[in-house]
Amino acid sequence: YKLKNADLAAVEDAYSKAAETGMQVLAEEFVEGRELTVGVLDKGEGRGLEAMPIIEIKAPKGDYDFEHKYYSDETVYVCPAEISSEKTKEIQDAVVKAANLVRASGWSRIDVMLREDGSFALLEINTAPGMTPHSLVPLAARTEGISYGELVKLVASGASLKG
């Protein structure tokens, strides 16, 4: 359940309904803002992880749900996102730091919410993001001049069976 400006009764109701599934219920802060995602890629040559161009996800009514991600043609992806160069660098530095902190390697993607006041929250890291030609990391790669084939080679060259 997605609750905005909810009172205690609404939270309790949502919790009760979610608990009926018999599964564990997780509640987290609702972060409102512009939805962004940032690919992180090891481009080889010992350079380590680097942030890719930021993508802004513009879904109808701000609902980037399963339907709008996989089936709808209404979602718009803006790459690079229309954000100041200073804020872009700040977000990219934060996602690289986060990826390094969790010891991500090869490639990953981190979702970010950019609040109206300019602050931002890192939401989650996907350490095995989609790699179809229509996925978000390949979109960011194309934006910086890396072809899909080159991207696949970069990801494969960094692959390892080490745990």
Rank of each mutant, 00 (worst) to 15 (best):
N126C: 05
V38K: 00
G33S: 03
A128D: 07
L8Y: 12
E144F: 10
A104S: 15
V102T: 10
P133T: 14
L36K: 01
I125T: 01
K43A: 15
D13Q: 15
P60A: 13
V95Y: 02
A19W: 00
E45W: 13
D73S: 14
M23A: 04
S105H: 15
A14I: 03
T127A: 05
G44P: 12
N100M: 07
E20I: 02
I83V: 13
A128N: 08
H134I: 14
N126L: 11
Y64T: 10
L3F: 08
T143V: 08
K58L: 12
A27I: 14
V155W: 04
D117T: 06
Q92F: 07
L123D: 02
S16N: 04
L41T: 02
E124T: 05
G145T: 01
L139A: 12
V78E: 10
G106R: 11
I146E: 12
N126G: 03
G106S: 03
A9N: 12
A19L: 02
G149P: 04
K4R: 12
K2D: 11
V38I: 08
A159W: 13
V11Y: 11
I125G: 07
K4D: 06
A59G: 01
T132C: 12
W107L: 08
T88K: 02
V40A: 02
P80Q: 06
K43M: 14
S85D: 01
R47N: 08
A27R: 01
D73V: 07
D93F: 06
Y77P: 02
R142W: 14
E144T: 05
P80A: 08
A18K: 03
Q92H: 02
A140R: 01
A156D: 08
K162R: 14
R34C: 00
V152G: 15
E20A: 01
I54F: 11
M52G: 04
G46H: 08
D13I: 15
E82S: 07
K97V: 03
Y148C: 08
L122T: 14
G158Y: 12
G149V: 05
K58E: 07
L41Q: 06
